[in-house]
Lab assay of single mutants.
Amino acid sequence: QSFTCPYCGKMGYTETSLQEHVTSEHAETSTEVICPICAALPGGDPNHVTDDFAAHLTLEHR
């Protein structure tokens, strides 16, 4: 399964590499985005909106 960065649209990330990408490239970004990992999880929330995606990844998807 691969994920797309909700900020810049780059594709092909794993859960881990998406977290690394967001932390390095978009750490200061506070735009509201939908978490693509939550959306892909069975029973996950397809509409989970977060305005601190880097922190959300760290808390929810480590």
Score class of each variant (00 low, 15 high):
residue 2 S to M: 09
residue 2 S to G: 11
residue 2 S to L: 10
residue 2 S to R: 10
residue 3 F to I: 11
residue 3 F to L: 04
residue 3 F to S: 00
residue 3 F to H: 06
residue 4 T to I: 07
residue 4 T to M: 14
residue 4 T to V: 08
residue 4 T to H: 04
residue 4 T to L: 08
residue 4 T to K: 11
residue 4 T to Y: 09
residue 5 C to M: 00
residue 5 C to K: 00
residue 5 C to P: 00
residue 5 C to G: 00
residue 5 C to I: 00
residue 5 C to H: 03
residue 6 P to W: 01
residue 6 P to F: 01
residue 6 P to D: 02
residue 6 P to V: 01
residue 6 P to R: 02
residue 6 P to E: 02
residue 6 P to N: 01
residue 7 Y to G: 06
residue 7 Y to E: 10
residue 8 C to H: 01
residue 8 C to V: 00
residue 8 C to Q: 00
residue 8 C to I: 00
residue 8 C to R: 00
residue 9 G to W: 08
residue 9 G to A: 15
residue 9 G to E: 13
residue 9 G to Y: 04
residue 9 G to H: 06
residue 9 G to V: 13
residue 10 K to P: 00
residue 10 K to T: 07
residue 11 M to G: 12
residue 11 M to V: 12
residue 11 M to E: 11
residue 11 M to K: 07
residue 11 M to Y: 09
residue 11 M to L: 08
residue 11 M to S: 13
residue 11 M to A: 12
residue 12 G to K: 05
residue 12 G to F: 02
residue 12 G to C: 02
residue 12 G to E: 04
residue 12 G to M: 00
residue 13 Y to W: 04
residue 13 Y to Q: 10
residue 13 Y to D: 03
residue 14 T to E: 04
residue 14 T to Y: 01
residue 14 T to P: 08
residue 15 E to N: 06
residue 15 E to C: 05
residue 15 E to Q: 10
residue 15 E to I: 14
residue 15 E to Y: 04
residue 15 E to T: 10
residue 15 E to M: 13
residue 16 T to C: 12
residue 16 T to Q: 14
residue 17 S to C: 00
residue 17 S to V: 08
residue 18 L to Y: 15
residue 19 Q to A: 15
residue 19 Q to R: 00
residue 20 E to P: 10
residue 20 E to G: 13
residue 20 E to D: 08
residue 20 E to R: 04
residue 21 H to T: 05
residue 21 H to E: 07
residue 21 H to I: 02
residue 22 V to E: 03
residue 22 V to P: 01
residue 23 T to Y: 12
residue 23 T to L: 11
residue 23 T to S: 09
residue 24 S to A: 12
residue 24 S to R: 11
residue 24 S to L: 09
residue 24 S to C: 13
residue 24 S to Q: 14
residue 25 E to D: 05
residue 25 E to A: 10
residue 25 E to F: 06
residue 25 E to Q: 07
residue 26 H to A: 03
residue 26 H to S: 06
residue 26 H to M: 05
residue 27 A to V: 08
residue 27 A to L: 10
residue 27 A to E: 11
residue 27 A to S: 09
residue 29 T to L: 08
residue 29 T to P: 06
residue 30 S to M: 06
residue 31 T to H: 15
residue 31 T to S: 12
residue 31 T to A: 05
residue 31 T to V: 14
residue 32 E to R: 08
residue 32 E to P: 15
residue 32 E to G: 11
residue 32 E to W: 05
residue 32 E to H: 02
residue 32 E to I: 06
residue 33 V to A: 11
residue 33 V to G: 03
residue 34 I to E: 08
residue 34 I to S: 08
residue 35 C to I: 01
residue 35 C to G: 04
residue 35 C to P: 01
residue 35 C to A: 02
residue 35 C to F: 01
residue 37 I to L: 11
residue 37 I to G: 03
residue 37 I to H: 02
residue 37 I to A: 02
residue 38 C to Q: 07
residue 38 C to V: 04
residue 39 A to M: 04
residue 39 A to L: 09
residue 39 A to G: 05
residue 39 A to H: 08
residue 39 A to W: 03
residue 40 A to C: 07
residue 40 A to G: 08
residue 41 L to H: 14
residue 41 L to V: 14
residue 41 L to Q: 15
residue 41 L to C: 14
residue 41 L to F: 07
residue 42 P to F: 05
residue 43 G to R: 11
residue 43 G to V: 05
residue 43 G to D: 11
residue 44 G to P: 10
residue 44 G to C: 12
residue 45 D to F: 04
residue 45 D to W: 06
residue 45 D to G: 14
residue 46 P to M: 11
residue 46 P to E: 07
residue 46 P to T: 11
residue 47 N to T: 14
residue 47 N to Y: 06
residue 47 N to L: 08
residue 48 H to D: 13
residue 48 H to Q: 14
residue 48 H to K: 14
residue 48 H to C: 13
residue 48 H to N: 15
residue 49 V to C: 09
residue 49 V to P: 05
residue 49 V to M: 12
residue 49 V to S: 11
residue 49 V to Q: 05
residue 50 T to A: 07
residue 50 T to V: 15
residue 50 T to Q: 09
residue 51 D to G: 15
residue 51 D to A: 15
residue 51 D to K: 15
residue 51 D to W: 06
residue 51 D to T: 14
residue 51 D to E: 10
residue 51 D to V: 12
residue 52 D to P: 02
residue 52 D to N: 14
residue 53 F to E: 03
residue 53 F to A: 03
residue 53 F to N: 02
residue 53 F to M: 02
residue 53 F to T: 04
residue 53 F to Y: 01
residue 54 A to V: 07
residue 54 A to E: 05
residue 54 A to F: 02
residue 54 A to M: 08
residue 55 A to R: 14
residue 55 A to M: 10
residue 55 A to Q: 09
residue 56 H to E: 02
residue 57 L to D: 01
residue 57 L to E: 06
residue 57 L to C: 05
residue 57 L to I: 08
residue 57 L to F: 10
residue 58 T to M: 09
residue 58 T to S: 14
residue 58 T to R: 12
residue 59 L to H: 06
residue 59 L to C: 07
residue 59 L to Y: 06
residue 60 E to S: 06
residue 60 E to P: 01
residue 60 E to H: 10
residue 60 E to T: 06
residue 60 E to Q: 13
residue 61 H to S: 00
residue 61 H to M: 00
residue 61 H to N: 02
residue 61 H to P: 02
residue 61 H to W: 00
residue 62 R to H: 11
residue 62 R to N: 12
residue 62 R to V: 11
